[in-house]
Design a protein around this nucleic acid. Sequence first.
DNA 1: GATACTAATTTCCTTTAGGAAACTATTAAA
DNA 2: TTTAATAGTTTCCTAAAGGAAATTAGTATC
Lengths: 119, 119
Amino acid sequence: MKIQQQEPLSKECIQQLRAIKDTMELLSGKWKIQIIGTLLRGGTMRFMELKRTLNGIAPKKLSNDLQELELNKLITRTVKDTKPITVEYSLTKHGKTLDNLIVEIIDWGLNHRKEIIKE
Amino acid sequence: MKIQQQEPLSKECIQQLRAIKDTMELLSGKWKIQIIGTLLRGGTMRFMELKRTLNGIAPKKLSNDLQELELNKLITRTVKDTKPITVEYSLTKHGKTLDNLIVEIIDWGLNHRKEIIKE
DNA sequence: GATACTAATTTCCTTTAGGAAACTATTAAA
DNA sequence: TTTAATAGTTTCCTAAAGGAAATTAGTATC
């Protein structure tokens, strides 16, 4: 019987798997990419503006996702001294670097749909 | 008071949101990208080879994910008439088109980690 | 004084993802 | 005949994601 050796993964490979995990944890879920995409297109936006544009999101979810994106330095949150108070969200420079990736995700998805439907 | 009008999303925008959803549903989860990445690097592989390489995956999960990837025409499944039977999995031409996207996901993740750690 | 706007938070609930362990069925080697 | 390999399936369980509705709290308009 041939004993199957499990050769340990290279350091580089482990780093790459971690990079995939990092990216996917940030982008997974129903709303995160939509929030980023909306801010990419709309620039600076308020909480209620985002809520209206992201048709159907629950305020709890929007609040949670925004906090998580802020923690990861993808967006900034600014409280304005207006009455009633308004809070402005916009992408950081780092957040804007997701643009290319999102475009690739869209392109692949469009092509995939053609591929699945055709035969 | 200003009534906020909810202008309906353009047809193009709806298509793009659907494309994001399509791609992310395929790639989300703990194992799918790892399975695709493994097959990109390893070429044709058997069930147990995949299971051993994807250190820690439960056979149920591997089986389920492979079925889903096959349904979406990203991989092919071939039963070999050996004793005991072996089943070979490999990426389709369409499945291989995920290469660029995965590379982008890795690159962004590597850069993101630098960005978060630095300050 | 009642209602509505701002931006959330809290509570409760359902659905989905995924892991652990046992089991099926066939074949071959010790 | 016991053990181990092939490729799964089945059952049971926990944790996480996410939705619905109510609540908070300050301000402003009717």
